[in-house]
Design a protein around this nucleic acid. Structure first.
Lengths: 338, 338
DNA sequence: CTGCCGTGTGACAACGTTGTCAGGGTCTAG
DNA sequence: CTAGACCCTGACAACGTTGTCACACGGCAG
């Protein structure tokens, strides 16, 4: 900036005025400074500028998701990015991989970087640590999992409802022995899906067989194994509900290995690209990822703009997408057929 | 910081020393300052710190990909993130959506933010504009598409080889009428894949039917349409090569609609999650996304560390992943069979 | 001619931090 | 007892920018 001022023969302040398009600079000077800026490839130092300006924004928001490479996280991030772009804000993204410690250290880092806002898909059970972090006034919005131990905006899917929709759908088709595959039950989303699974049964007077409900499954391979084990039971399930898309792929594989893809019904939570190309197409409970992302973005920027109403907790309703795999009727006997 | 100094009864500089874990502070004072820091929730202002330090890094890298929500971009980003994390660096991510203008403005913004490095999956044809941007010394690494008009490191997949692998595979199975579905030919990746498609044919003395080679297809629906049109020809293709995964899903859909999934061979460029669950499993040319991301990360940080050797251009070899859809033999007559 | 106003410009301090250097205290060797 | 060395600590300037304020100039009314 000093060089620009020297080259244009003006003071630092005048360069600042031109760069910031402030009024009150004669066209002549404005032109001279502009030329000098271009000639020297001058770029204002945003850090210094923010330092000086009172209450300036960094134009940066932090987004902490479970895993940038999974389609749910990536979809939410993408929708958020679009909102951020319209607010001339850049996005700092990171994966938490369900690691509590990483969540805390990332939040700390981002707050230290003075991001204007924070979006968190939490890995931790409780976020008490956030109370201190957010004392600086950084707004935070939770997504996918509600906050515990700290009061903040959130956008979550109604996991209970989603599971119930799926199970009711299967019950309507006559299924009575429905297997449930779930993630770690201490994760709120998994917990609610298990609850929805159970509630749908009991509401209809059906008692779910506890042997058919398996939780703590965290990989596709484990899911394949579990499904094989369930199908080996003397009274195997006639339908399967997968509580997460990666568990659904394990289930699909197990069914395929036994030639049962058209014999055992399957419904999954979470849609994914190309689920409709499977044969039969995979019936899923879909979360509207981009709507979730947009909602989160909108709420975050309202807070950044100074909105100070009490935290809002938006619950997005998932929908059942019928594609075939979930519409296989109960087959009372002779499941081995092709 | 001033408050901390006052509370601890020391000078600003001493607080600075404690915060930065500099040597030469008595344990007593260190402890007092530490307590004050905790009590006041003090956080150093990174911007100010960077401003003062000579040649300090921002601990920030910019990553510009095609679309954060597609699995290739997301996978590369994720692998990059892991490298960045090990270097205590955060990642600023953005989607370009093949928009040239956005590429330029994002690069400009990121350079102004003083990122330590830049990763670009270019949307533009030429990147001459970068010469001026990079004069500040910000290193850049290109991924997926090589740089034009500016000399910089790059990591790209051998698209020519990938397409050739696929076509040779199909030719080996006796196919002679192979359809090719491609993206816009002015995009270098598409261009090379078309070239590989053609070269594989001519190397084997087969003349590809120009009517079977369609480029400029940019959506799944368009691909479906095109495949239907090709299958309506008097002499339809016995195999299809999809030059991109989104085109593959269009092709799968068209084949499914005609009950030809087990009759017409299909090989696609780009793997995607759950491609193995299709029936038959989709045979693809796979790019090792996480290796690409890691390589890019490694190269970028070498530059950030001051490496000044001439730019390197790494070409990653793709591999053919056989899953069934590509191994359907040529069926000389009566393709309509189920 | 004087005084006032508006316009364009610049000097200076300040944002929050750290590098430099100097000073005061304690310790050790001569 | 003194000189030198060493250890801690603090004063001060500087990083690149912008807010505040003052000043110089030309024009205009009295």
């Amino acid at each position: 900036m000093r060089d620009v001022a020297a080259l244009a023969g003006v003071s630092l302040k005048t360069v600042s005025r031109v760069v910031n398009e402030e009024a009150g600079v004669s066209p002549d000077v404005r032109e001279r400074v502009g030329a000098a800026v271009r000639r020297l490839d001058y770029r204002p130092n945003l850090a210094a500028s923010n330092l000086r300006r009172t209450g300036a924004r960094t134009g940066l928001v932090g987004v902490l998701v479970q895993d940038l490479s999974n389609s749910f996280s990536a979809g939410v991030l993408r929708a958020l990015e679009d909102v951020a772009r319209s607010r001339r804000t850049a996005v700092l993204a990171a994966s938490l991989d369900e690691e509590l410690e990483r969540e805390q250290s990332m939040v700390h880092d981002l707050v230290t970087r003075r991001v204007d806002g924070l979006v968190i898909m939490p890995a931790s059970q409780r976020q008490d640590y956030l109370v201190a972090e957010l004392r600086t006034g950084t707004p935070a919005v939770f997504v996918d999992r509600p906050p515990r131990g700290v009061d903040a905006d959130s956008v979550v899917v109604d996991n209970f409802l989603g599971a119930r929709l799926a199970i009711e759908h299967l019950l309507d088709l006559g299924h009575r022995r429905i297997a449930g595959l779930f993630h770690l039950p201490q994760i709120p989303t998994a917990h609610d899906r298990i609850a929805g699974f159970t509630a749908a049964h009991t509401d209809r007077g059906v008692r779910p067989d506890p042997r058919l409900v398996v939780d703590g499954i965290s990989s596709t391979d484990e899911a394949t194994e579990v499904v094989h084990r369930l199908l080996d039971l003397a009274d195997p399930p006639s339908a399967i509900f997968a509580g997460r898309n990666i568990l659904a792929s394990g289930a699909v594989r197990a069914l395929a290995e036994r030639g049962l893809r058209r014999s055992v019904a399957l419904v999954s939570f979470d849609d994914f690209p190309m689920a409709d190309l499977l044969d039969p197409g995979l019936t899923v409970v879909r979360q509207d990822v981009s709507r979730i992302g947009r909602t989160v973005g909108r709420m975050l920027f309202e807070r950044i703009d100074g909105e100070s109403a009490p935290p809002r907790h938006v619950v997005v309703e998932p929908t059942l997408v019928v594609r075939g795999s979930g519409e296989i009727p109960r087959r009372p006997e002779g499941q081995r057929r092709r």
